[in-house]
Design a protein around this nucleic acid. Sequence first.
DNA 1: AGTAATCTTGACTATAAAGTATAGATTGGC
DNA 2: GCCAATCTATACTTTATAGTCAAGATTACT
Lengths: 158, 158
Amino acid sequence: MKLSANEEYGLRCLVRIGYAGEGGSLTIPEMSQAEGVSPAYAAKILRVLRKGGFVKAARGKDGGYTLARPAEAIVIGDVMDALGGRIFESSFCDSHSGQAAICTRSVDCSVRSLWRAVQVAVDQVLSKATLRDLLQNEEEMNTWVRTIPGARGLHVIQ
Amino acid sequence: MKLSANEEYGLRCLVRIGYAGEGGSLTIPEMSQAEGVSPAYAAKILRVLRKGGFVKAARGKDGGYTLARPAEAIVIGDVMDALGGRIFESSFCDSHSGQAAICTRSVDCSVRSLWRAVQVAVDQVLSKATLRDLLQNEEEMNTWVRTIPGARGLHVIQ
DNA sequence: AGTAATCTTGACTATAAAGTATAGATTGGC
DNA sequence: GCCAATCTATACTTTATAGTCAAGATTACT
Ligand code: FES
Ligand code: FES
């Protein structure tokens, strides 16, 4: 249950583009320098964001990447799904079943129930966060986090 | 942000041992058959659980694995940490920083704040679940999930 | 048309995670 | 003591993820 490199860099890149503002754009070399990754890798990450419909690309001179919609219309949960998939998917128990066709307890599995609960807990945060929220500074973001319904206590490690 | 194979099989194996009850034990071949994985792989997983202090192993004839403590004293969050690490650790931003020494925004990073919020949301579920809870059937587990403070609405996808 | 800046694509390599194989150590029963 | 059943440790192979490379396509400007 770790963040993948795709998720980490993908979200950071999207935030950078968001910072460029309405109509502003960022090129691959700029992104590469801003995040400290190779241009080729930045290109690969930006491709995922483009295919997910979060950014638009313009080619040629004066080209670059731009948000496909206003920042407040980009839900971070959707971005994360595009970048790295979900913790619990219905297909999960099929693909982690060893030699058996499915989890040997699939008709009545308390573990599955726990995974679902974890997934929902994560979704509660990610489905309420938009790119607009991430364009704030860290302190404002911390304040925002505490407003998530059902997430009282989230300040404990801030 | 996916479950690793270690986490999935590790938790399932622990539940199996829990089912064996107080003093009951399970051998590697039994575990292998129960979960449909190879004996060698079951051994590898059980080693992690043993090193984490969740199970005890007895060698030789009549040997096998037993819970190291009562099921209610085994917190699932601790088990998950041993099996697969955490989503957000302080070292994370150091190791995903491209060529830069740290995230180029590390003094004021809203992304980091979001990761923390996700980690806390997950912890709210996993720190309250003990192995005892997982020894129930799925329906009882679903009921239990709804009792997590701050997790109202967790039933939406049940 | 020519050129430089830009994105696009697919193949490639490197590294980490998943899963297997093998030799060794411990225990209980005969 | 010997043997069979069991766990233990390490090295190995396979597969997935991370990251690089090189050739090509598009655009703006002159
Ligand atoms: S059905 Fe997926 S872990 Fe049991
Ligand atoms: S400090 Fe880790 S993402 Fe910015």
